[in-house]
Amino acid sequence: MEFSTSDYDYSQTTDYTDEGLCNLDPNPMEVTIQTYIHSIICAFGLIGNALVIVTYIFYKRTKTMTDVYLFNVAVADLIFVVALPFIIYNEQHSWLMGPAACKMLRSAYSINLYSGMLLLACISGDRYVAIVQARRSFGTRSHALMYSRLICSAVWVFAVALTLPTLLYTERFEEQNLGVDTVTVMCQLSFSKNETAKLMKVVVPSLQMAIGFLLPLLVMVFCYASIVCTLLRAQSSQRHKAVRVILAVVVVFIVCHLPYNVTLLNHTLSLFKQRSCEAEKMKLQVLAISKSIAYLHCCLNPILYAFIGVKFRSHFRQIMLDLWCFSKKYIYTARSSRATSDICISGRVSSDGCNNMSSFTA
């Protein structure tokens, strides 16, 4: 018997295979391991992206196109890591929140996926223009901030538009559990017509793979390959470090997102075919593992794109210095407090004095 087409979510409790009813609930050990992994992702993602946002708002300011893109990438990742704990908790304890929260939280990942990946493609494009097309782009980059803000606004609007199917069709509903007289409240994509379900089961993952992975990957590979060729021809002592950073950016992107997209493609192609219960359980396990690996990218983005830069690290050190100063301010006497404040202010000035370094540090 064919799988039911009433739900899109890949973590259904029960469904049909050629063997009849199949319980697709993950075992408790898998749930526990995933909880720990996602907790680590949330903690590091929250700290890293929050520090990037704080640095850009209070210390570094946004002076280049890359700065604007990095700030928006951090915002996108922060939205996701804030929503992730609520999604995980509600999935493991039945859905306790209302229909509005159900739609918003389910849409958070989709918005992060599209906006984050497209912004990373924009960063690679900006670096391509700044390095490979440096002479041609010298005049046009005088309005860089205005252009970058317009591009970021367009990316966010496009991401929200691509998320509309998830927002419209995600519903909070109840499902009767097999063999027991209990009801599980779920938050999943749900459709009233089979035709709509079949269409969305193909369209939604296809958009995720095409726009959320393949398009950014192609842009990044082309731009960074051109940058590497340009750097290798240049007589610079920093070129080998720059090439290593670029390779790290591309490799991490592929390692994080390729397994999930390949698994998602395989699962989508088999949605309307008969498959055994054990094979389906295995696919869902692989899908869950690869999705967790994809989530890791939101923790690595601050390291790859922000903290690796010399200028950004100097601002980050200034944050740590100011935090230390302000903590001492409330510990020592009034005289020590005034002296500490002077140190903080002088540190801020010295930080602002080194703003002439390039934001492209790869």
Rank of each mutant, 00 (worst) to 15 (best):
S314L: 01
V160T: 11
V68M: 12
A339I: 14
M1D: 05
V349F: 09
E2R: 12
S11K: 02
M1T: 02
S236Y: 13
A210R: 11
N356P: 00
E280W: 00
N177A: 15
S327R: 14
L207G: 15
L70Q: 04
T163S: 10
T35W: 14
Y114A: 06
L178I: 07
E171Y: 03
D322A: 12
R275W: 03
K198G: 03
A294I: 05
A288I: 04
L145I: 13
K329F: 12
K281Y: 00
R317V: 11
C22A: 03
N194Y: 08
R275Y: 02
L189S: 02
N90L: 09
A161R: 08
E171N: 15
L96K: 12
F173L: 06
A101P: 00
F158L: 15
I41N: 01
R335T: 09
R61Y: 09
R335Y: 13
I254E: 05
V219N: 04
K63W: 01
R135L: 09
Y169T: 09
R141S: 06
C325K: 05
I211S: 07
L287A: 07
L118D: 03
I37G: 03
M104S: 10
L232S: 06
C187Y: 04
T182C: 08
V185R: 12
V252L: 02
Y332Q: 07
C102Y: 05
I303L: 15
F316D: 04
T13H: 14
A83W: 01
E91T: 09
V157D: 00
I87F: 11
A294N: 10
T5Q: 10
Q133M: 08
C42I: 05
I293A: 10
L96N: 09
V251Y: 13
T64W: 15
S336E: 14
F316R: 03
Q133H: 03
K283P: 00
S346D: 15
I47A: 11
D77Y: 05
L168W: 10
V255H: 00
S115R: 12
V349W: 04
I319H: 04
V204Q: 10
S350R: 14
